[in-house]
Each structure stands twice: as C-alpha cells, then as structure tokens.
C-alpha cells in the first residue's frame, strides 16, 4: 500500500463522512417533523407519517437508492450523483430517527408539561423549549448508533456511482489488481470512523448525565 493510494482512500473517506454527516443532520430535521406528525391526533396526518416510516424502514436502502436514481431523471429532475445519494440516505435515516424520536416524545414526563402549563408557556413554547430538547436528549444514544448505521450504509451509494470510500477502494482494487489490501484498508478506515463516533457519543452521554445530576 503506497502512500499515494492511502491518501486517495483517506480523501474518499472524507466524502463518506461528509455525505453521512449531512444526511444525519437533514434526517434529524425531517425525522422530527415526521415523528410529530405520526403522534398527531388527526388520522389524516398521523397515518401518512406512519406509512412513510414503515416504507423507508421496510425497503432495502439499495432498492431505495436505485429507485431515487431512476425516479429523479424520469421526473425531469437532473441532479448530480452526490445529491441523489444524500436524498436517499436522508429519507432512509429520517424514518429510523422519526421512530426513535416518537419514543422520546412519548417519554417526556407529563409533570414537566403540566409545570410548563402552570408557568404560562404556550403550546409552541412548550414544544420548542420542553418537548423537543427532552425528546432529543432522550434519544441521543440511539442517534449515535443511527449515525454509525448511516456511515456504514453510505457504502451503498458506491453502487450508483458516487466515488466515496467503498467506490474508491473498488476502483483502486481493479486498477492495481490487489483487492485484498484495498478493501482491508477501506474496512479499517470505516472502523476508525465508527469507533471515533461511538467514543464521541459515549463522552457526550457522560457529559449529559453529569450536567443533569
């Protein structure tokens, strides 16, 4: 493994991290929206949200990505591969995050909302200042494992032509005829990224607990 090849893989790993990071963040925003909708008392709002969650959790990500790649041009929308990849990963992770956040919203203690009522907070204020922060804090551990899932799942966008870490390893493997070191190095880079994220997550959780005590 020469340094030039390693540098190429590391740079491609940067794209993997960027694609995953953007998708996680957008997925959190969209997931928040979907989870609130799925908890609505109006069935016209909650049923579509639940179908959305069920669909994107029930279909393999590869199939979703293939569908989006073929659907966008068919609908006359021409976007670069990276954008389509982010759209696919965002839709998928938003469904998982919506399901996690739903649990978070349901475990916000009732007493806190009653206290907020007494303190004169309106519904919007309660939502912004009490329910969302607590639901997100409660789902932080699952958010970290979801981030790791998406980092790993982002390898699938290689199949639809985005040159991130897995695709770079594939290209280098076929140009050097040495698949073993290329894929092993790519795997090691994924492990390094995942374990870093997991470590950061643990540190964040400890801090959150420490702050609460």
């Amino acid at each position: 493994m020469s340094l030039t090849l390693l540098a190429l893989l590391v740079r491609a790993a940067g794209l993997t991290v960027a694609i995953s990071g953007v998708s996680i963040a957008l997925g959190l925003a969209l997931g928040l929206f979907v989870s609130v909708a799925s908890l609505s008392r109006r069935r016209l709002v909650s049923v579509p949200a639940r179908v959305y969650v069920s669909f994107f959790r029930g279909v393999p990500l590869l199939v979703q990505l293939l569908l989006i790649y073929n659907l966008l041009p068919a609908a006359g929308i021409d976007v670069p591969g990276v954008v389509a990849a982010v759209v696919g990963l965002t839709l998928c992770t938003s469904a998982y995050q919506a399901e996690n956040l739903r649990g978070g919203f349901l475990s916000v203690p009732r007493g806190l909302l009653e206290a907020a009522d007494m303190a004169g907070l309106g519904a919007v204020q309660q939502f912004r200042r009490i329910r969302v922060p607590i639901a997100v804090a409660l789902t932080l551990p699952t958010l970290v494992s979801e981030a790791i899932m998406i980092l790993k799942a982002s390898s699938l966008v290689s199949v639809v032509g985005v040159v991130e870490l897995t695709r770079m390893a594939q290209d280098l493997a076929s140009s050097t005829y040495r698949p073993l070191p290329m894929f092993a190095t790519a795997g090691a880079l994924y492990l390094a990224i995942d374990w870093t994220v997991a470590g950061l997550g643990h540190a964040l959780e400890r801090r959150a607990r420490w702050g609460r005590a």
């Binding site: 790791i148 790993k152 799942a153 982002s154 390898s155 699938l156 290689s158 199949v159 897995t166 390893a169 594939q170 493997a173 040495r178 698949p179 073993l180 894929f183 092993a184 790519a186 795997g187 994924y190 492990l191 995942d194 374990w195």
Partner: peptide, 23 residues
C-alpha cells in the same frame, strides 16, 4: 464481533468475494 459490526457489509462482501481468491 466488533470488526464485523463496525464495517459496512458491502466492504466485507467485496473483501471476501474479490480478495478471497488471493488467499
């Protein structure tokens, strides 16, 4: 367990399918 859980399935599959013949 940690290596299999920490790396993408696609990369594991490539390693086995394309790297396997070399060993």
């Amino acid at each position: 367990v940690e290596v299999l859980r920490g790396s993408p399935f696609l990369v594991q599959l490539f390693l086995l399918y394309f790297g396997g013949p070399f060993i």
